[in-house]
Amino acid sequence: MTSKKDTDIRDINYEDLGSAVLLDRYRVPETYADGVSEILIGYPMTKITFHTVIESSDKEMRRACAMLTMDAPSTLDLAFDILEAFRRVDEVLLKDVGPRITEKLKMLLERIPKEEMQSGIQERSKKPSKAKSKEKK
């Protein structure tokens, strides 16, 4: 068995993201979720529990399938990233899905607060990234 020291950098899958390098992107397990069951916002950590629906009768039965734990600022950053990604591709999404899903997506996309979100994204872009702030130290 090889130790971390013995691993050749060429054996690690990585992607240059500009201000950072993402290692092992394709070695992370992918988990499907039907939705979010619980969000516990706290400082310093926030926990988000995802679920899958295992039975739907009188009462929907859900099974927890993953839990994401992040620091509070990174969780808020993730929320802005998700909203911004949907804001940029909403027209493309609506063309590529069926009519039932299109109506649901339209309703959800209309709930995104465009002005508030845009000001939050602009504020975030003014702050130096974690990678840049570490370089200055």
Score class of each variant (00 low, 15 high):
Gly42Gln: 08
Leu78Cys: 13
Ala66Met: 13
Pro29Asp: 00
Leu108Glu: 03
Leu23Pro: 12
Asp24Asn: 15
Tyr43Pro: 01
Glu60His: 00
Phe86Ser: 08
Ala72Ile: 14
Leu68Met: 15
Val28Gln: 06
Ala66Asn: 04
Met117Pro: 03
Thr75Cys: 11
Cys65Leu: 11
Glu110Val: 14
Gln118Cys: 09
Lys95His: 12
Leu78His: 02
Ile41Thr: 14
Tyr43Ala: 08
Glu103Tyr: 05
Glu103Ser: 12
Met61Trp: 05
Leu108Lys: 12
Leu40Tyr: 05
Val36Tyr: 02
Tyr26Gln: 08
Ser119Thr: 07
Met107Gln: 10
Gln118Lys: 04
Arg87Ile: 11
Arg27Ile: 10
Asp34Glu: 02
Lys104Phe: 14
Val21Gly: 07
Ile39Leu: 04
Pro113Ala: 14
Asp90Glu: 14
Leu76Glu: 04
Glu103Trp: 14
Leu40His: 05
Arg88Ala: 06
Tyr32Leu: 12
Thr102Trp: 03
Val89His: 05
Phe86Val: 15
Ser57Arg: 13
Val28Tyr: 05
Ser37Arg: 04
Pro29Ser: 01
Pro29Ile: 11
Ser19Val: 15
Cys65Trp: 03
Val21Pro: 03
Ala79Ile: 14
Leu105Lys: 00
Leu94Lys: 10
Ile54Pro: 00
Leu93Ile: 09
Ala72Phe: 10
Ile48Arg: 00
Ile112Gln: 00
Leu23Ile: 15
Arg100Phe: 07
Lys104Ile: 15
Glu84Tyr: 15
Pro113Asn: 08
Phe50Cys: 02
Thr31Trp: 00
Arg63Glu: 12
Arg100Lys: 07
Lys114Trp: 00
Arg87Met: 13
Arg111Pro: 11
Leu109Gly: 01
Asp81Ser: 13
Asp77Leu: 11
Asp34Lys: 03
Gly35Tyr: 01
Ile101Ala: 08
Ser74Lys: 03
Met61Lys: 09
Glu55Thr: 04
Leu93Glu: 02
Glu55Gly: 13
Val53Lys: 07
Arg100Gln: 11
Asp58Phe: 06
Thr52Tyr: 05
Val53Glu: 05
Pro44Tyr: 02
Lys47Tyr: 04
Arg27Tyr: 12
Tyr32Ile: 07
Pro44Thr: 11
Ala20Asn: 11
Ala20Glu: 06
Asp71Ile: 15
Val92Trp: 05
Thr75His: 05
Glu91Thr: 09
Phe50Met: 02
Lys114Cys: 02
Met67Gly: 10
Met107Asp: 10
Gln118Thr: 06
Tyr43Ser: 08
Ser19Ile: 11
Thr31Glu: 02
Met70Gly: 06
Ala85Gln: 06
Ala79Tyr: 12
Glu84Gly: 11
Asp34Ala: 02
